[in-house]
């Protein structure tokens, strides 16, 4: 082997284990899922191609509109809460407070849901929202003389969004905190010297300066929420009736509760396609091409 060939082969050899890993754990499952979505694969794991029947089956499902609406409400509102509250906490602990023990305690408290096992958290939320007299919120409403509220039936989506918000806030908070801490203090001081108000500094200087992390958090959280169902499954199991059944939960139930793997794969494929489209739209919304250009600073 000539030296030139060796030089060309070297990166291929060095990178091949990683290519292999990506192929085995990402590429092959993706191809299999796409293929599976056109089959009637059930519990016996046997494949029979059935064309588009899985797709037409769920498009004809009379409650698919409810599932789409639930998914939209769940993703949009949880995302707004996650990103919004995460931003506010970062702003409070970095911009309005000096870096000290108090700001660290506040951030640590908001980190607790992230480091707690999700099953423990959901059990806590289930007790918090329990529709019976024994639920924490109902104990409070009873104490102040209000009527008992059936949180998990009359306000089930609110409960699901709230639980997910508290679990997800820490991610946005961490990214925004580190982004804000990395900004040079001079620009804020300069703005203050020029007589800018706090709101002007936040919206005209700080927010544009952390546009990258905001975009990153928004896209990652959107994709995570589109595919997440664990909290909903454990808290309401998609009910009452189908009031909190989101697309990913429906796909999970089809594939794993009813062993309709082909149907579940078709639902997942649609979910992935929608998520991909959403990502492109968000990149456009944040003007990704513009951000990729060299900074003028």
């Amino acid at each position: 082997m000539t030296f030139d060939m060796q030089r060309k082969m070297y990166p291929v050899v060095m990178l091949s284990p990683f290519f292999l890993l990506v192929a085995v754990f990402y590429l092959v499952p993706t191809i299999l899922t796409v293929l599976m979505s056109f089959t009637d694969m059930g519990y016996g794991m046997k494949w029979h191609f059935i064309g588009m029947r899985n797709f037409s089956a769920f498009m004809n499902f009379p409650f698919i509109g409810t599932i789409i609406r639930n998914t939209f409400v769940y993703v949009v509102f949880t995302l707004i809460c996650n990103v919004g509250i995460g931003f506010c906490i970062a702003l409070l602990t970095v911009f309005f407070m000096d870096e000290n023990i108090h700001s660290r305690i506040i951030r640590t408290i908001w980190m607790l849901p992230r480091i707690t096992p999700s099953i423990v958290l959901v059990i806590m939320w289930a007790w918090f929202f329990s529709s019976t007299d024994y639920g924490f919120l109902n104990k409070v409403t009873n104490f102040i003389g209000l009527e008992q509220i059936r949180w998990l039936s009359d306000h089930a989506m609110l409960a699901v969004i709230t639980a997910n918000t508290f679990i997800g806030i820490s991610f946005a908070m961490l990214i925004f905190t580190s982004a804000m801490q990395s900004l040079p203090n001079d620009i804020f001081l300069a703005a203050e010297v020029d007589g800018s108000k706090k709101t002007t500094i936040i919206f005209s200087i700080l927010l544009p300066a952390i546009k990258w992390p905001v975009m990153f958090v928004t896209i990652v959280q959107t994709l995570a929420l589109m595919t997440s169902y664990e909290t909903t499954l454990l808290l309401t199991n998609g009910g009452p009736v189908m009031d909190t059944t989101v697309w990913s939960l429906y796909a999970y139930k089809k594939a794993f509760n009813y062993s309709e793997f082909g149907h579940g794969a078709a639902l997942s494929l649609v979910l992935v396609s929608v998520s991909f489209t959403l990502t492109l739209l968000l990149l456009r919304f944040f003007d990704f091409d513009e951000m990729m250009k060299n900074t003028r600073l």
């Binding site: 089956a57 004809n60 499902f61 009379p62 409650f63 059936r150 039936s153 009359d154 009910g239 009452p240 009736v241 189908m242």
Partner: peptide, 28 residues
């Protein structure tokens, strides 16, 4: 179970819940 939940939560009458079951089962 969904139909029972609908009835007990008064989201549907028993007759409506049966229609819901029919629709859901026929499509699934």
């Amino acid at each position: 179970t969904e139909a029972m939940s609908a009835v007990e939560h008064k989201k549907m009458s028993p007759a409506q819940a049966v229609d819901y079951m029919e629709k859901s089962l026929l499509s699934q």
